[in-house]
């Protein structure tokens, strides 16, 4: 087994009823998405809220129905399994949620929370409790097993959630914004914990985040989502250095940098407007309504998925339709922006 999770051409819709007697009109929020997560690999899914990241997380776990596509989890095709038949396979993929406050049942103690997923296993209660205790210790929470969630800080709660996810020895953990509700210092602790658990247990992560500085620290590979589509994919370092898609560039430049000297602020691309309404993407390239480089072709033709020399793939006309502002032009723009200091705030809207 080399791939822990394989998703091919998956689409997901939400039902939407228009009016009192209107027909149910499905709203497509994830369109034709394919990706895989290898054993021990960390794959990050980044994008704005509403881009479909969390929907993908729930759909691959079959917590949401999918329109079409195929999901293979730990070499088992789970696409069409009934919920009952699926239950034993669920242990292979576990979820860690964003909000460590609502994801733990407030009426259970830490050890009960971690012990619960072990119930399906052929273990005595004693064995389960001992195992849960070890798991809590492995996430740095020894000696506090009998406490209730409210007695823990946000970071400690997230540790409990991680211990719970690890309990059934899954091949894959899907982390849905696992650190975005935490303080920066705590974020770093949790990221470091996740990283060391991956090294010791060989578990894979599908890591969902809108925060690129976090993604950079942990992910091997990045998938960039925009309006329900994957627009760019590649090894983390390369995507960060040479992004193919202007949207990735905008995401990268939007992260506020901590600099003491205002003049050193990088010039940034401030995207105008919002994501398109789900279910009604604009024609052509879905990003053209906000893209600073949009050309005529972008408004009419859907850009093809293209693989580039440096191992990054993406869909953008800039690199394929003979534009003067090709791939090198994009990175050149970024460099120019960094160097330019014509306004003291160092920002620009284009």
């Amino acid at each position: 087994m080399t791939q822990v999770l394989e998703v091919s051409e998956m689409s997901v819709s939400f039902p939407r009823r228009s009016g009192l007697l209107g027909k149910s009109q499905p709203l497509r929020v994830v369109e034709n998405v394919s990706f895989e997560v290898g054993k021990g690999e960390v794959v990050a899914l980044v994008g704005e809220s509403g881009s479909g990241k969390s929907t993908i997380a729930r759909a691959v776990l079959r917590l949401l129905p999918i329109d079409n596509g195929r999901i293979t989890l730990a070499d088992v095709d789970i696409t069409t399994l009934s919920q009952r038949a699926l239950r034993p396979h669920r242990r292979n993929a576990q979820l860690v949620f964003q909000d460590p406050y609502s994801s733990l049942d407030p009426s259970m103690t830490a050890i009960e929370i971690v012990e619960e997923p072990l119930r399906g296993f052929a273990m005595s209660r004693e064995e389960r409790l001992r195992s849960a205790q070890e798991l809590l210790a492995s996430v740095g929470l020894a000696g506090v097993e009998g406490r209730y969630p409210y007695e823990f800080s946000g970071g400690q709660r997230q540790r409990i959630a991680i211990a719970r996810a690890l309990a059934p020895r899954p091949a894959l953990i899907i982390c849905d914004e696992p650190v975005s509700a935490l303080d920066l210092s705590t974020q770093n602790q949790i990221i470091s914990l996740l990283d060391s658990l991956r090294q010791s247990l060989g578990v894979s992560y599908l890591f969902i985040s809108h925060d690129l500085s976090v993604v950079r620290r942990i992910a091997d590979r990045v998938l960039v989502m925009y309006a329900g589509e994957i627009v760019e994919e590649g090894p983390t370092e390369r995507v960060f250095r040479d992004p193919v898609h202007p949207y990735t560039l905008a995401l990268l430049s939007a992260v506020p940098a901590v600099v003491g000297d205002r003049s050193k602020h990088a010039k940034r691309i401030v995207l105008e407007g919002d994501l398109p309404v789900p279910g009604a993407p604009p024609p052509g390239c879905r990003f053209h309504t906000r893209c600073p480089f949009a050309m005529d072709v972008c408004r009419s033709e859907v850009p093809a998925w293209t693989e580039f020399d440096h191992g990054v793939s993406g869909r953008c006309h800039l690199h394929t339709s003979g534009s003067t502002l090709g791939f090198s032009g994009l990175t050149q723009f970024a460099e120019d922006a960094m160097a330019s200091t014509d306004r003291d705030r160092g920002q620009t809207s284009i």
Binding site: L61, L63, L86, R87, P88, H89, R90, R91, A93, Q94, L95, F97, D99, S102, S103, L104, D105, S107, M108, E116, P117, R119, G120, A161, R164, P168
Partner: peptide, 26 residues
Amino acid sequence: EETFVEAAKSMGLSQPRIIWRHVLPH
């Protein structure tokens, strides 16, 4: 709608167990 119920579902717990342990106490 609480996340911990979704978490219980994603862990593969049976429905009676979820109702008994995660819904009823509340």
